[in-house]
Design a binder for these strands. Structure first.
Lengths: 216, 216
DNA sequence: CCTACCGATCGGTAGG
DNA sequence: CCTACCGATCGGTAGG
């Protein structure tokens, strides 16, 4: 079976849905909702625009699928990072969660950054499914922040809501300035953790590695 | 001269340029670049769409004017806040600057939030004038952060770039969640200041007022 | 998954 | 600041 035949088969077998979403995610990441057209998506995929309607009912449905997948992606990454540091120091868990969030945003997948881009510049009220998926992810941070405030890693005197909104805002804001090479994600996660976490004296070792690369 | 006559005169005398920009700012704030059309702007102003071209050469020119004014507006507000607290404690100066930035974003003017909305979701590379105006504003924060790190209010061990990007990202991110009534700007400024500034013991009085209103 | 088509709307221009 | 107009492009549909 030739590569062309294989592609034809894989498309007819349903892989084309994923291919459409991958492409849409990439275009939405850089162009946002209105700048991204169905024609662009179709052309990049290699089909006709009308054929998109064989897989999806509307542009909104495509965008919604990308946005939800993007939130689920970062959600799973952060949950995994917390599971992997289950018995580590609270501060390490925070750093791991921040690192996972930043990696989801700036790694190889376009879904999460597309999600932020589209949602942030959300002209229309986000569909209910999007708000639900997002809230579930935010709950992970609510839980983590409560844990860290109880442990004293984050000040118990601060509003948990303000903490979460401030931190997630700062992390998501990195899509506007983050460029690989200027910062690397691990160094950035360590910097951001140190910015809001107590017990700075504990990060002397981190600092040597951090600051030199993060202020490069 | 009545208020209505005054308005009519100011419009016929060239106030229409300002009126167009005010209207564009309001629409750009809620809709972003692509969602905001010249027809909408013209209709809201009460003229024909083609007449916009009597005042501006293109949509881009209108948007650019709004965005630059928005950055200048927040810039002036922060500079004024710093001037007003010139001899105050460094921490108070930080709080004043944060409060001024938040007030510019969430106060009565639409320009700054339109600026953030359009710039953030900046599909196209921002025009040179926009990048210049923005950089001048960022320099205010560079200076303040250096001052605060020297004073020990912000940790000198943190990257100044990371501090600035983190803080401004968090502040600008508030356009996605801030609603008057849930938080008030002054309480929010105090919370955010406490989140990143040292010397937390000093803010016991603030806290009593803060947390109760900020976590409402 | 395709060809062919549609009404709506976009930013912008001509000419006054 | 207006009327009148334009080519381009949008998301979406018909019918296969």
């Amino acid at each position: 079976m030739s590569a062309v035949e294989k592609q034809a088969v894989s498309q007819s077998e349903g892989g084309s849905r994923r291919l459409i979403l991958d492409t849409a995610a990439r275009l939405l990441r850089s162009g946002g909702y209105h700048q991204t057209t169905l024609r662009e998506i179709a052309e990049a995929v290699g089909i006709r625009k009308a054929s998109l309607y064989y897989h999806f009912a509307s542009k909104e449905e495509i965008v919604e699928a990308v946005v939800n997948d993007g939130v689920r992606f970062v959600h799973e990454a952060v949950v995994a990072a917390l599971a992997a540091t289950e018995s580590a120091a609270p501060r390490k868990r925070l750093e791991a969660a921040i690192g996972a969030h930043l990696t989801a945003l700036h790694g190889n997948s376009d879904y999460t950054s597309a999600s932020i881009k589209v949602f942030t510049f959300g002209e229309n009220p986000a569909p209910e499914s999007v708000r639900g998926v997002r809230r579930v992810y935010e709950d992970v941070w609510r839980g983590l922040i409560a844990e860290l405030q109880a442990a004293g890693t984050l000040s118990a005197r601060r509003s948990p809501d303000a903490l979460r909104l401030f931190l997630l805002g700062a992390l998501n804001g990195s899509i506007d300035w983050y460029r690989p090479g200027r910062f690397d994600v691990a160094a950035l996660a360590a910097e951001f953790t140190a910015l809001i976490a107590h017990g700075e004296q504990g990060d002397a070792a981190l600092f040597d590695a951090d600051a030199s690369s993060a202020s490069r």
